[in-house]
Design a protein around this nucleic acid. Structure first.
Lengths: 188, 188
DNA sequence: GCGAGAATGGACTGTCAGGTCCATTTATGG
DNA sequence: CCATAAATGGACCTGACAGTCCATTCTCGC
């Protein structure tokens, strides 16, 4: 039940924003009564917290296969394609599930910030591992620091998904990633 | 009077978010009565619209001196420094004034999207001009397309400022910009 | 089959925000 | 100095939403 509530909340929050989504919205969407909701959640602030964790693992799970398989530029491009595909499918609606939450909830609660930071670090870690693999097989120049580079990727993705949300098109994300990849690919 | 209302609204929205800022908050902050507010604004939706335009021109004005003066890598770095300085001063609080608004208001109203897109295009245009100047003086390789590159800069900045807001530090932005600049600087 | 505790339905309350309205005050032009 | 319109103060209405409460139903060990 709790999972259903969180999943519904995640969907609504993704579409309309955290502060815009009322508990009544979630309630109606999942077909639960008020007491059910308060049976599973202490208060309203618990919901975004749960949504952060939910989306954090979902977003990573969606890309892990592609990222873990990176051992060549082609495989990196496969990840890029997956990202653009996801952006085209969902990103135009709500941008990055984690980025939007971060933007909205960062000024609000320390616990939210902590959970969001953990999510982003996990994401950066996945990208870093892919870049390390790329260095191990000699594709990516050893002069790069995979950790910082992973943060640059994350920033680019966040920005790109923001524009996807704003313009309803993943083009900015695609172009940004392509340029970034081209830039690191052409360096000795 | 209207300017005062908009400026106060902009400040509060920057600190706490658009949907979080009530007209009463703005009212109290500027010391106006309810009828004054409704004398100058048709309804609540007019306020974010005005804030978008207000922040759009403010953000651009803040950087235009540095961007217009770019004619060498040093001058580009001066812009980078200004950006990091602004992020250190304000960005940790509310991230990018425009980016946060975009994130929150994009799902909401077409008129907001239009105004936000116009703001971002203006910003991208300024960056593009700087990059063109850099090509004109032979610093930046001619193989780059300044328009796409300006979008990559914008994405990186948006992402970096999101992390500034989340982590209370402009480090991610600084590192991101430095890496990006290094990448385009080392190419023929 | 029954009794205890969990799960549920939904009415109810308090608060807050958006918006309306009107009486009063303040400029402004003749 | 007055008439008119703009500007202001603030009471008031309405709806939405978070959260409470209690009566009822379900579930499960015994």
């Amino acid at each position: 039940m709790r999972e259903g509530i969180v999943a519904a909340a995640a969907e609504l929050v993704f579409k309309s924003g955290a502060r815009e989504t009322s508990l009544d919205d979630v309630r109606h969407h999942v077909g639960a009564s008020k007491s059910q909701l308060y049976h599973y959640c202490a208060d309203k602030d618990e919901v975004p917290q749960a949504v952060i964790e939910f989306q954090g693992s979902r977003v990573i799970a969606e890309q892990q296969a592609e990222l873990a398989a990176v051992n060549s530029w082609e495989r990196l491009l496969a990840w890029r394609n997956k990202l653009v595909l996801l952006a085209e499918a969902y990103g135009k609606i709500g941008g990055c599930p984690m980025g939007s939450l971060a933007n909205e909830l960062a000024p609000y609660r320390q616990s939210h910030r902590t959970a969001l930071t953990a999510g982003f670090q996990a994401g950066a870690g996945e990208i870093e591992r892919a870049l390390l693999a790329l260095q191990a097989c000699g594709a990516l120049s050893a002069k790069f620091d995979p950790k910082s580079l992973s943060l640059l990727f994350l920033s680019t993705i966040q920005g790109g998904l923001l524009f996807a949300k704003l313009n309803g098109s993943a083009e900015a994300l695609a172009k940004g990633l392509d340029q970034l990849i081209a830039l690191i690919r052409n360096q000795e």
